[in-house]
């Protein structure tokens, strides 16, 4: 089976925020929430790097482990999905997430912050694939159509790669060899290789 992952090549990311924008548009993500962001490190200094981040769809996903109401679940492609009908807005997943991926509509008084939203790897939710209800709650289901997340497919510099982990790893390594440098797969250790933590 393929194991779907995200990889952002920081040498190519130009902080255009197209991934974040197209994601919001494709899924009609509600106001105040964002499924994909671009973070810039050492802004304005030598060694400045930008890197796009969303839910990484972790191995041994910590959010699934801490969810008290079984809202979060994983599929055998590695995609971590959520069920908005059972979510109680406790925010545990946000504390457990190594990438700050879960989003909440409110950060107001009294505990619950509304139903959590996060990147679905463009794979919808538990509703019937392609149904209107699924779209309303989770956005487009591109995986069901055999397509990959739109953030990566729209990326003009092909900095953001999505799809089978082995394949994108190969593409990236070949690229690093061809150009002679690369700063590695950011976040992969925290996301995909939990035993590797130092």
């Amino acid at each position: 089976m393929a194991r779907l992952k995200f990889l952002c090549d920081t040498e190519r990311c130009i902080e255009c925020n197209a991934c974040a924008t197209v994601c919001k548009n494709e899924h009609e993500v509600p106001w105040g929430m964002v499924r994909r962001r671009v973070v810039t490190i050492n802004d304005g200094e030598p060694g400045e790097k930008s890197v796009a981040i969303s839910c990484m769809h972790c191995t041994d996903a910590p959010c699934v482990a801490v969810c008290p109401v079984s809202t979060l679940y994983q599929t055998d492609l590695g995609i971590v999905l959520h069920d908005k009908d059972t979510c109680i807005g406790c925010g545990y997943c946000y504390y457990a997430c190594p990438f700050g991926a879960p989003q909440f509509p409110r950060s107001t008084l009294f505990g619950t912050r509304g139903t959590m939203d996060k990147c679905t790897y463009c794979a919808g939710g538990p509703e019937e694939n392609g149904s209107e209800e699924e779209f309303r709650k989770y956005g487009r289901n591109r995986i069901a159509e055999g397509k990959l997340p739109i953030c990566a497919e729209v990326c003009s510099t092909r900095a953001l790669l999505a799809g089978d982990g082995e394949t994108i790893g190969e593409i990236y390594r070949e690229r690093v060899i061809a150009r002679g440098f690369g700063s590695g797969a950011w976040g992969w250790s925290s996301a995909y290789y939990p035993d590797d933590r130092g």
Partner: peptide, 19 residues
């Protein structure tokens, strides 16, 4: 880092402490 997106916590890239 920093992020040009206006969301709380948008500047976070990675925090291994989550695990």
């Amino acid at each position: 880092g920093i992020s040009s997106l206006p969301y709380a916590g948008a500047a976070l890239f990675e925090r291994p402490d989550g695990r």
